[in-house]
Structures are given as C-alpha cells and as structure tokens.
Computed example of a mutant assay.
Amino acid sequence: MTPLLRGRAGPARRRPLDEESARWLHELAGDGRQREEAVRRLHALLVRVSTREVHRRGHRLDLSGPELDDIAYQAAADATIAVTAKLSQFRGESRFTTWAYAFAVFEVSAKVARHFWARPGARLADEQWAQLPARFGFQPDQEAQWRELLAALRRAVEQQLTERQRRVFVAVVLNDEPMDTLALELSTSRNALYKTLFDARRKLRAALVADGHLASPTEEAVSGWSALERFLRTDPHDVGCDEAMKVMHLYVELVTADPQHARQQFAGLAAHLEACGPCGEDFDGLLAAVRKVPDER
C-alpha cells in the first residue's frame, strides 16, 4: 500500500467483555457437549445472518429460493469454521456476535463473487464506453458538454494508466464487473484491486483537471458532472479494504449508537466506505444484521 492508503481506521479502545460475549467465548473454547451446543447455536445464528444477507443482495444475483438458501448455508458453515478457529483473535472491542456476523457477511461476498465468476456470460469482453453516460447520470440535453469530457477521459485511460490499471478500470467501471469477481479472475485480492483503482482514479482526475475538464480539488465540481467528479476524487485518509474489513465490526457498533461520532473517530474508514462499493456493501449488510438479527441463545 502507498502512503496515500496508510493510516489508522480509528482508535479502538479495549473494553470489558459484556456478559453475553464472555459466555460465548467460554462455551466455544470449552470441550465436549457444551462446546458442541455452542457451535450449533453459533451456526444457527450465522445461518440467519447469511440468509438475510443473500436475500438482501438477491436482486443482483438472478437467483431465488433454494439456490439463494444454498449460498447462505455455505456461507454460514464457512463462517462458523472461521469464527471458531479465530477465537483467540477476538479482542472484546465489540460484542462477540457483531464480530461473528462480519465473518458471515464477508463469506456471503465471497460466495456471490464465485457465483458471478461461474455464471456464463457474466463478464463482458468489450469496453462498454457507450454505457458510461447513463452510469454517471449525464443528461441527454447536455451531450455536447459531456461528450467532450468522456472523450478526454477515454484518452486519459489509454494514455495515463498502466496496462493493469486500464484493465481494472475497464472491467469495474465500464463493464460493471463486481470487484470481488475480478479478483478471482486475476488471482488477486479485493484490497489489491482497490489500490490499483485508487491510483487510476487519482491519475485520471489529475489529467482531466490539467486539461480544464474538471474543477480542481479546491473548487466546486462543474454542474452536471458531479457523479464522475466524486468517483475520481480520492481521499488520502482512505484506509483500504484490508484495514476496513478488520475494524468494520467496531465501526458498525459505533454507527448504531452515534453515526456522527463514528465518522469522526473512524474518518479513514468512513472515507473508504464511500469510495469502495464492495466494502460499502459489506458494511450495509453488517449494519442490517446488527439491527435486525436477534442474538438468540
């Protein structure tokens, strides 16, 4: 990661374990029938989280019914294994269930990415430049203005980006390929792809500003082009995907209590969630789980 993506997501102070979290840890770290029963309850809880999450994302999966439930059960099973294997890593900075929910949400993301990867026709070979105006909300009556802007953007993509940056930009931005699916295709990670796209956005914005097509960072964006301008803007405090996923459970609990304070305390994470679609999706899912899934014992 470059210095632009370094930085703490926010301070996390260790707090005394709440009674429920302490009980989960005690029972899961035990042995015999007590542990078996705790694992069974944990799995049932994560099935509810995963099921809610796959149905929340279902409209984009072209799946329904048993197929969605199958993804949910696979995600819950893998999340249960991960949680029990990493009990020693739970630091008590959030409720145990919030920490465990995050594993389920991340597993759903992974399973959804593999679904797209395996689906015939999921990836487009051609660059879909014609779709870009609609994706950024350009109005037909402004075509004379945005056509020139998009022509400049295309030149910058071809001339300013490295081959890998260009490939990632085309796949994610033009062809609307999910970043996690692209990570599978390229045998890399979400964080590595986000870093590549982060650097590409920074280069493209600088090129367009230099040519007079966008406002500079200290000026207001040109009317009608704000969506593109926001996409190209990068925040030096952005912590990246790996750090965001490590502390997302902490941030979610703060958001449920005091959203404004959460954004102040975790400014780097908040900046990242605004810019990264996959991490933003995971955050929405984890927040929904914390608010809606009962922690049944």
Rank of each mutant, 00 (worst) to 15 (best):
T2E: 13
R6M: 09
A12C: 09
R15P: 02
R15C: 02
R15F: 02
E20C: 03
E20Q: 10
A22V: 02
A22R: 14
L25C: 06
L25E: 08
H26A: 15
E27V: 01
E27A: 11
R33H: 11
R35I: 07
E36L: 12
V39M: 12
V39Y: 00
V39S: 10
R40P: 01
R40M: 04
R40C: 06
R40T: 11
L42V: 04
H43E: 15
L45S: 12
L46Y: 05
V47W: 03
V47N: 06
V47Y: 02
V49L: 04
S50K: 05
S50G: 13
T51V: 03
R52G: 09
L61W: 08
D62T: 10
L63K: 05
D69G: 01
I71K: 11
Y73F: 09
T80S: 12
A82N: 11
A82D: 15
V83P: 00
T84P: 01
S88V: 08
Q89T: 15
Q89F: 07
F90C: 08
S94M: 00
T98K: 01
W99M: 05
A100P: 06
A102E: 15
A102V: 06
F103V: 07
F103I: 01
F103L: 04
F106R: 15
E107L: 08
S109Y: 07
K111L: 12
K111Y: 13
K111S: 11
R114S: 12
H115T: 00
F116M: 07
R119M: 04
R119D: 00
Q128K: 13
A130M: 06
P133C: 08
F138R: 04
E143D: 05
E143P: 01
A144C: 04
W146F: 15
W146R: 07
W146T: 03
A151D: 13
A152H: 09
R155V: 00
R155K: 10
A156I: 02
V157F: 08
E158C: 05
E158F: 04
E158V: 04
Q160R: 15
L161T: 02
L161D: 10
R164A: 12
V172D: 06
V172Y: 10
V173C: 12
E177S: 05
M179Y: 01
M179I: 10
S187V: 10
T188L: 06
T188V: 06
T188E: 09
S189I: 04
L193K: 05
L193R: 11
Y194I: 00
K195F: 09
K195M: 06
K195H: 14
L197V: 00
F198S: 03
D199N: 12
K203R: 15
R205N: 07
A206H: 09
L208H: 06
D211M: 08
G212R: 08
G212K: 07
G212D: 02
H213V: 01
H213G: 02
L214K: 09
G224A: 13
L228R: 08
F231G: 13
F231E: 15
R233F: 11
T234M: 02
A244G: 10
H249T: 03
H249G: 01
V252T: 12
E253H: 07
T256Y: 01
A257Y: 03
Q260E: 14
H261Y: 11
R263G: 05
R263N: 09
F266C: 13
H272C: 04
L273S: 00
C276N: 15
P278T: 07
P278Y: 10
P278F: 09
G280I: 00
F283H: 14
L286H: 03
R291F: 01
K292Q: 14
V293R: 00
V293H: 05
V293C: 10
R297A: 12
